[in-house]
C-alpha cells in the first residue's frame, strides 16, 4: 500500500530519498504501468511504499547528442521521443516504436525509463534499444554504473537495478547508417495494441551493397530483450538475396523456440516472427515487400 509520496526537485534530492527508503520506495514517473499494477493487485498486497515522483525533476527529461552518443533521460516520454527530430534522424525505428506504444494519452505520460524498468517482454521500445546496443546508466548516492541494455534484465518484469538506484538515462552510439533500420509490430488491432510480436532491425551496408553489420532484436518472443546473433551472422558479409534474408529470419524463430521452448503460442509465433523479420530486414534495406 501507499504510505505517502515524495516529490524531489533535483537528482541530488532524489538520490538522498532513495538511499533513505531503498526498497520502501518506488519511483513513479508517467504512472501508466504503476497505477494499473496497483489496481490489479489491490492495495493490501506488497509492503508499504513511498512513491517518489520524478516528474518534477526537469534534469531527467532530455534528448541530446554529443560526441556521437545519443542520450535520452529516463523521464522522457514516448511522445517526446516519437516527435524528436534528433531521434527521427539518428534512430528512426526507435521513434516508430515509441509511436506504437499505447495511445496518445499513454505516450504523453509513459516514459522510456518506465518502459525499460517495467521489463515487459512486449515493451515496444526495447527491441530498437537492443538493436542499437544501448546502455543504461544507473546512479545512486554511491556512484554510477553503465550496463548494456540486454544485460539489464534478469527475466520478464525483472531487472538488475538495486534498491537506492535510479535509472538516469539510456544512451547509444549514433548508428553509421541510421536509414537502414526498421521496426515492425503485429498487434490484434491498429492502435492501443499490446505487441503480439515485434522486431527491430539495424543494418550497416557498404557501397557494394554488402551488409557489414547487422543487429536483429525481436519483441514478445523472448523472456527479455536480446539480439539474435545467428540471424545477424547469417546476414553479415553478404549481399542480401531472398535466400539469405529468409535464412536469417528463420534463425529468429529457431532462437525463440530454443530459449522459450514450445508453448501454446508457438505454432503461431514461430512462422510469424520469421515472416515479420524477413519483412523488417527488407524494409531496413529500403525494399518494400509484403
Amino acid at each position: 500500500m501507499t504510505l505517502g509520496f515524495i516529490r524531489p526537485k533535483t537528482v541530488g534530492e532524489l538520490l538522498e530519498v532513495l538511499a533513505e527508503y531503498k526498497d520502501g520506495s518506488k519511483i513513479v514517473a508517467g504512472a501508466t504501468d504503476l497505477l494499473v499494477q496497483q489496481r490489479n493487485s489491490k492495495q493490501v498486497e506488497g509492503k508499504p511504499l513511498y512513491l517518489v515522483d520524478i516528474t518534477g525533476i526537469p534534469e531527467l527529461a532530455y534528448i541530446n547528442v554529443e560526441s556521437g552518443v545519443v542520450r535520452i533521460g529516463a523521464a522522457t516520454t514516448h511522445r517526446d521521443i516519437a516527435r524528436s527530430t534528433v531521434i527521427q534522424d539518428v534512430a528512426p525505428f526507435l521513434a516508430d516504436a515509441c509511436l506504437t506504444v499505447g495511445s496518445p494519452q499513454i505516450r504523453a505520460r509513459g516514459t522510456i525509463g518506465g518502459n525499460i524498468i517495467n521489463a515487459s517482454p512486449a515493451a515496444d521500445s526495447l527491441p530498437p534499444l537492443a538493436a542499437l546496443s544501448a546502455q543504461v546508466r544507473l546512479v545512486s548516492k554511491r556512484g554510477s554504473r553503465d550496463i548494456a541494455i540486454c544485460d539489464f534484465f534478469k527475466g520478464p518484469y525483472k531487472t538488475v537495478i538495486e534498491p537506492g538506484e535510479l535509472l538516469q538515462e539510456v544512451f547509444f552510439k549514433v548508428p553509421k547508417n541510421p536509414g537502414n533500420c526498421s521496426f515492425l509490430k503485429i498487434g490484434r488491432r491498429e492502435a492501443v495494441a499490446i505487441s503480439r510480436l515485434s522486431v527491430a532491425v539495424l543494418l550497416d551496408v557498404d557501397e557494394s551493397g554488402k551488409i557489414t553489420e547487422a543487429a536483429i532484436a525481436p519483441g514478445s518472443c523472448l523472456p527479455m530483450p536480446a539480439r539474435i546473433v545467428r540471424a545477424e551472422e547469417t546476414l553479415t558479409g553478404k549481399v542480401p538475396d531472398e535466400e539469405t534474408v529468409e535464412a536469417a529470419a528463420n534463425e529468429v524463430g529457431e532462437e525463440m523456440v530454443r530459449v522459450s521452448g514450445v508453448r501454446w503460442s508457438t505454432p503461431y509465433k514461430k512462422p510469424v516472427i520469421c515472416a515479420l523479420t524477413r519483412r523488417a530486414i527488407w524494409k531496413a534495406l529500403g525494399v518494400d515487400v509484403d
Binding site: 509520496f5 513513479v28 504512472a31 494499473v36 512513491l51 515522483d53 495511445s103 505520460r109
Partner: peptide
C-alpha cells in the same frame, strides 16, 4: 492529453 485515471493527484 492524458488519462486522468492514470495521473496520481500529487503530480
Amino acid at each position: 492529453p492524458v488519462n486522468s485515471c492514470l495521473v496520481p493527484a500529487f503530480q
